[in-house]
Design a binder for these strands. Structure first.
Lengths: 148, 148
DNA sequence: GTTACTGCAAACCGTTTGCACTAGA
DNA sequence: TCTAGTGCAAACGGTTTGCAGTAAC
């Protein structure tokens, strides 16, 4: 099969190959879906549906396995939206968090992360070695503000 | 049945009754388990097991329904530990977050919450109405620090 | 040609639900 | 008495797993 790569995919696909993983059509499909939705976390079901238009018949299990792999390789990252199913987004390099509308589910990206300060404080007051964190804000988006 | 109440339970149980809910033996059992583990979030399975010693034969479904009710009434709160199952703790009145050991699962409570500052910043830069948030830190507890 | 990867279907498991029975007030 | 609450067992739904077939290289 001839592989036509999107510009941005090159780096991630090269990373796959250099670590001994095969570049397959399902993996490309999932990667492209994530790339095209940068900044917008997608549910596994959405990723499966969108990837199906690129690789017909892609199995849901493959989508799960691919996303797991992409997270391990830091190609993708889990978004902690506290919805029914897991959400993923491409790892754009910038560490960030999300603002989630509890009414319609719309997600806004928060540019900055202040948790580094919290981690610093914890380093002084606790014997824990902090390695990661998660944070999300919840509320109402402009069109869902009650009485707004 | 004669109800022997623990001192701290009085307020929460009164709150139940005043809102039209019945004070039952399973609800007391769950409440007491939460009270006795203040500051230590428990899984539904743990709560079920511990409550069973107080009300033999308590059903898991009842535990789930009771915890759901307690959260609605702000008697209890969900802890977002990102483990396999949900965790709950008594609402001690102080808003706080957790430090979770990714190795052994030990949980430490963080006294302060700095997210209010983040919410303030969001208020200036976004049209979202922020109503809540969740945050957890992950890492290694003293006995699990790699190479430590 | 090897074997990593895939699709399928079944299993898994935490949580929810329907229902007949029980017990709180 | 009346009905909210309960225990049980089945259903639910997102995720994982086993396996035989397929495709990457």
């Amino acid at each position: 099969m001839i592989m036509i790569l999107k510009k941005n995919d090159a780096g991630h696909l090269a990373g796959l190959r250099s670590r001994g993983y095969r570049i397959t059509s399902p993996r490309q499909a999932v990667l492209e879906v994530l790339e095209e939705n940068e900044g917008r976390p997608l549910s596994t079901e959405e990723i499966h549906r969108l990837a199906s238009t690129r690789h017909e018949g892609i199995g849901l299990a493959t989508v799960y396995r691919t996303l797991e792999l992409f997270c391990e390789l830091q190609i993708a990252a889990r978004a902690h939206l506290h919805r029914d199913s897991e959400h993923f987004e491409i790892n754009s390099g910038s560490h960030h968090h999300h603002l989630v509308c509890v009414s319609c589910g719309e997600v806004e990206m928060l540019e900055e992360c202040v948790i580094e300060e919290v981690e610093k404080a914890v380093r002084d007051r606790s014997d824990f070695l902090v390695t990661s964190h998660c944070m999300s804000l919840f509320g109402y988006c402009p069109s869902c503000i009650p009485g707004g």
